[in-house]
Structures are given as C-alpha cells and as structure tokens.
C-alpha cells in the first residue's frame, strides 16, 4: 500500500502513515470541516492494511493538541480497529502524546485506552516549556 502523507492545516492534523514500517502518526489539531471526508479514506486504507498483518509490530502515534467532538468519535473507532489488529496476533502499541499541562487531553487519552483489551498503550507528556 502507498504511504500516506498529509500536511497539517489550520483545522486538520498532519497524517503520516508508513505502511511498510507499520508506523503511523497523526499530529496537530483536528476539527476538520467534514470529519468523514478527512478521516474516511485514510482509515479505510489503514483497516484494509491491518487485516492483512500477522505477527507484525505496529506503532500508532497520536500527538493531538486539540480535537473536536466529531473527531473524538473517529478516534473511538480507530482505537477499536487497532485493538482488533492486536487481537489478530499483532503487537500493537498506541502512544498518546499530550501537552504536559493539558489535563483534559491526558484524561481523554486514559478514557480512550480504558477499553483496550489487546493493544498496548503508552502516555507521553510533552514539555511545552
């Protein structure tokens, strides 16, 4: 599958999907005009790719500074997809990076992670200085 690289805009995050290395990242702010139009295609690609993986090391980096409630819904689905990939015999690690003083983002990370049964989860506090 071709790698996906989308630059960040005012309202949408940078997307960096390296299918060959099984390394995925979403970084920045996320409140796109049309959440489905933005995330639909890239997550379809991701799902298609993950269903073909076996015994793979998969790493997903989420470095979101802010996201709106429609994006939250997408993230919930993403966590389910990644957990399924882990259930199917892959080593899946999700890294949730948040700004150190942002309690809301820290809490949201914990909340999303609560339902993971197979994937590994790490929280990473980013020093904002």
């Amino acid at each position: 599958m071709d790698n996906i690289k989308i630059n960040a805009t005012d309202r949408s995050p940078e997307v960096d999907f390296d299918f060959g290395r099984n390394a995925f990242a979403v970084r920045g702010e996320s409140y796109p005009e049309d959440v489905t139009a933005f995330y639909g295609p890239i997550l379809e690609n991701l799902e298609a790719h993950l269903t073909c993986q076996k015994d793979a090391d998969i790493k997903f980096n989420l470095e979101l500074i802010y996201f709106n409630s429609s994006t939250a819904k997408v993230l919930m689905g993403l966590f389910e997809t990644l957990d399924e990939a882990a259930e199917n015999g892959n080593d899946v690690l999700i890294i949730w990076t948040y700004e150190k003083d942002d309690d809301t983002m820290e809490e949201l990370g914990e909340e999303f992670a609560e339902d993971l049964e197979h994937a590994k989860f790490e929280m990473k506090a980013l020093d904002t200085g």
């Binding site: 709106n68 409630s69 429609s70 939250a72 819904k73 919930m76 909340e111």
Partner: peptide, 21 residues
C-alpha cells in the same frame, strides 16, 4: 463515552456528543 460509542441521536448529523463536550 457512551455517546461516542453509541449511535448518534435521531436527526443528528454530528457525533451528538457536542453538548457533553
């Protein structure tokens, strides 16, 4: 969380979770 996971309320075009947020 319940709202994020569940179906959006009838007639809702968004996630239906905006007010909770």
């Amino acid at each position: 969380k319940e709202t994020l996971k569940g179906e959006a309320p009838k007639r809702s075009k968004g996630a239906g979770v905006g007010f909770v947020d």
